[in-house]
Design a protein around this nucleic acid. Sequence first.
DNA 1: GTACTATTTGCAACTTATTTGCAAGTACAA
DNA 2: TTGTACTTGCAAATAAGTTGCAAATAGTAC
Lengths: 141, 141
Amino acid sequence: MPTTSDADLLRAHEMRATTPRLAVLSALRKTKYPMSAHDVAKAVRTKKVDMVTTYRTLESFKTAGIVTQVELQRGRAYYELSEGRKDHHHIVCINCDTVEDFTGCDYDALVKKALRQTVGFSSVTHHSLELFGMCTPCSKK
Amino acid sequence: MPTTSDADLLRAHEMRATTPRLAVLSALRKTKYPMSAHDVAKAVRTKKVDMVTTYRTLESFKTAGIVTQVELQRGRAYYELSEGRKDHHHIVCINCDTVEDFTGCDYDALVKKALRQTVGFSSVTHHSLELFGMCTPCSKK
DNA sequence: GTACTATTTGCAACTTATTTGCAAGTACAA
DNA sequence: TTGTACTTGCAAATAAGTTGCAAATAGTAC
């Protein structure tokens, strides 16, 4: 049974399956943790993909919902594949930048609670949740 | 009964009470929603505070815990006073940038849950949680 | 009040992150 | 195979944040 290819994934979002886009997808698949635009560009450099194309590709993937933007408070945007990562969050070491994942933010209850408190909002499309702290090795120093 | 002044607040964090710092504090107090460094700089421009000083001040306030950095996925950092804002979060309109607040992320339970799932972390110092969606006026368009 | 000193500020210049305009290249429907 | 709308690459621009250093100043000691 054939798995849906990345090309099909792109076409499902009405995007052409181009070399740069497939390269960016592949890079994101290979990496376990969120990547900055710079990280992605480095990974696709061998395929001669321009930095600007990387930015544009990540932006369009974000709009399409293929990637999720992650905020790590480092002054630049990070991205990871959305696929199979609903309720997927990060805990970040403020000392050495180590990242680990966790789940269980109780999204539905949270949204319900938030919408009950606000007066001007009626729907939530996505969310962002990160914890910051010290990893065990760093806290021993 | 005298309220603790901003100057005392600064000294409590071992920082000198300088004009630029007091101006930044005052600007943050006057504004209900998170401000970018640029917003703050604009607000303190009349006091002749340099942009660089604004950046440095916000950074030192953040380190001291006086302000909290907020991520609104707009490509720059936002700040708000930490004071009396524990468990304080935002819901942001992706169309018009309206921001409203909400509380109730159940922080302690969340941290406990996250630390149970991770292998390399032992403590959490702060967190970041934002919801993104459409405000009612925008969703009617 | 005056002097002292470590801290803080302002300015200029720099680095890093991201965006824009446009001509040339390419995926894919016909 | 061709046509065309969508994409890409390059150069250049803009935006966000940082650094070095000399001048200014808050807080302490007299």
